[in-house]
Amino acid sequence: MLKRISFGDKVMLIVVYALLSLLAFTALYPFWNAVAVSFNVGVDTAKGGVTFWPREFTLENYKIILQDERLLNGFLVSIGRTVIGTATSIFMTALLAFGMTRSYLIGRSYYMVFFIFTLYFGGGLIPTYLLIRSLGMMDSFLVFIIPSLISVWNMIIFRTFFKGLPVGLEESANIDGCSNWGIFFRIILPLSGPVIATLSLLTAVGHWNDWFLPSIYITSDTLLPIQTILRQTLNANIVSGSSTVLDSASVALLDQARQITSKSLTMAMMIVVTLPIILVYPFVQKYFVKGVLVGSLKE
């Protein structure tokens, strides 16, 4: 059926499309501009006026960034912590959530109160810091993994999802003499693809993006993830105006080249750090939309 559109509705539609286009432009422009600046010769950028396109094209910024050992190492640390941290946390949290769905679990309601209380109240930054210190986890890779093994939020979401799975399958497995571990591994986990994907995605993004914990717990350079290194670089730019936190080889290169400024290097660095997320993002979009809705059911 063709509907006649009134003049007022037409005007509104135009406004709607215009506003949304403007919003999308605003969301994209910072990336676009950063890409343009990162491909532009540094000293030329300093003259101003580089917005959408590079004026004097160069790959020099990326060459320096990608040769920097410290950054490369930071990448490895980030990848390592994201992969290991996500896999272990999702497994431990799912296991806990499965245990918590067993109606005959002795102490179940006490456990639940025990977990949920932590969503309301926490010791805060300093007591946690002192605890990590006294556990001897300072400056160790374990600090990325162990404290975040259990996420109470994710446990609640997993539990809600597991409860919604058909009971019949489990009962027949029970009759066949399948143990609880068997049910978990052979029935529950294979059926939980969507929720595992969603929570893994959000957990992984959290690990990849975290710069703060390493900034307080990690002291050796070789254990710093990429985001923390980037933060140090940006901070150095703001505070001193010019110095970068690159290794000495890069600084030597920097002096040699003269064409490069810390700003253009930082931009290239930001693009390199963001790239993995932008590359993975289109493939996982459908999962997080689902995930938000699963999560908000409980809210």
Partner: peptide, 25 residues
């Protein structure tokens, strides 16, 4: 039900250490 308790136990211990010990702190 030791097997189910065993599934819950690590979670309880971890939350105790990393959420309740700081509260004590």
């Amino acid at each position: 039900q030791w097997d189910v308790q065993l599934m819950v136990l690590p979670g309880v211990i971890l939350v105790f250490i990393f959420a309740y010990m700081p509260m004590y702190g």
